[in-house]
Computed example of a mutant assay.
Amino acid sequence: MPKEEQANRTFTQNARRTQIIQAAIETLAEIGYQKTSFNQISKRANLRSTGMISYHFSGKPELYSEVAATVLAMAEETTGSRMEREETFRGRLRAYIEANFEFLARYPAHTQALAQILMMDCGRDITRSQTLARSVLSVERLSLLLEQGRSAGEFGAFDALTMALAIRGALDGVLRRYLKNVDLDLERCAAELTAAFDQCTRPRQ
């Protein structure tokens, strides 16, 4: 949300919006998009009525936009903080992959809620999530990292876009299986993918 808009709200109003967003995340994760309603969210948030949700959000599109933006901002923070600690491009690539799994492990409900929203193809209404998605999940961001590392001599002579698509595709494949409640060892997946892409991006000796 715009900082000016948030600043104009009282502490209580912001706290209530946060409470509603968290309840929406938990509800979406537990019962799915189709079954989630203002009534279900209101019960989980212990609100007196659904009118309290309507006071803060004009409808589901705005609420789900805020849910998506909240989750993606958290993913951005997780990924960004891990990458910033690395001094090399190879280290940042490793951090990028590992941070995806770290977020899955730490915030399973948030991941499931975001997936529910995106699966319903609400892109026309949930516009705020798109900007964040470009910065957090986009192939373009990953491709830029690979190009910079290649220019620095840390990566081999491969097509950055193709490699970025391969990395993102592998991560998304694990995510899809994870969201289907497949029993996955996330630590092992992270280690395997990190090692695999570390190897195939190395310069030729």
Rank of each mutant, 00 (worst) to 15 (best):
P2F: 14
P2E: 13
K3M: 10
A7V: 12
A7T: 12
N8Q: 14
T10H: 13
T12A: 15
T12R: 15
Q13Y: 08
Q13P: 07
N14S: 12
A15N: 09
A15H: 14
R17T: 07
T18F: 11
Q19P: 03
I21Q: 02
E26K: 13
T27L: 08
A29H: 02
I31D: 06
G32L: 08
Y33R: 13
Q34M: 11
Q34S: 14
K35H: 14
S37V: 02
S37H: 04
Q40L: 13
I41N: 07
S42F: 01
S42G: 06
R44I: 07
R44F: 05
L47H: 11
G51S: 03
M52L: 10
I53G: 01
S54E: 02
S54K: 06
S54T: 13
F57L: 09
F57A: 09
G59I: 05
G59Y: 03
G59A: 00
K60E: 07
P61M: 05
L63R: 02
V67E: 05
A68G: 02
V71M: 02
V71F: 13
V71S: 05
V71P: 03
L72I: 06
L72C: 00
A73D: 06
A73T: 11
E76V: 01
E77I: 09
S81K: 13
S81F: 06
R82H: 15
E86S: 02
E87N: 14
E87G: 08
F89N: 07
G91K: 00
G91I: 01
R94T: 09
Y96R: 10
I97C: 00
I97R: 04
A99D: 00
E102K: 09
E102H: 13
R106K: 15
R106S: 15
Y107I: 05
P108R: 04
P108S: 09
P108K: 01
A109F: 04
H110F: 12
A113I: 07
A115N: 12
A115G: 08
A115E: 10
A115S: 15
Q116V: 00
Q116N: 11
M119F: 13
M119D: 14
D121C: 07
S129Q: 14
Q130I: 15
L132I: 07
L132V: 00
A133F: 12
A133R: 00
A133K: 01
A133Y: 08
R134Q: 12
R134F: 14
R134N: 08
V136L: 06
L137P: 04
L142W: 04
L145R: 00
L145T: 08
L145C: 09
E147M: 05
E147G: 05
Q148L: 09
G149W: 02
G149T: 03
R150S: 09
S151H: 11
F158E: 04
L161G: 11
T162Y: 06
M163E: 04
A166Q: 06
I167W: 01
R168C: 09
R168P: 05
G169Y: 03
G169R: 04
G169A: 02
G169Q: 02
A170H: 04
D172C: 06
G173F: 11
V174C: 03
L175V: 12
R177T: 03
R177E: 07
R177M: 09
R177A: 01
L179K: 04
N181L: 11
L184C: 08
E187T: 13
E187Q: 13
R188G: 09
E192P: 07
E192D: 15
L193I: 09
A196Q: 07
Q199L: 12
C200Y: 11
Q205I: 10
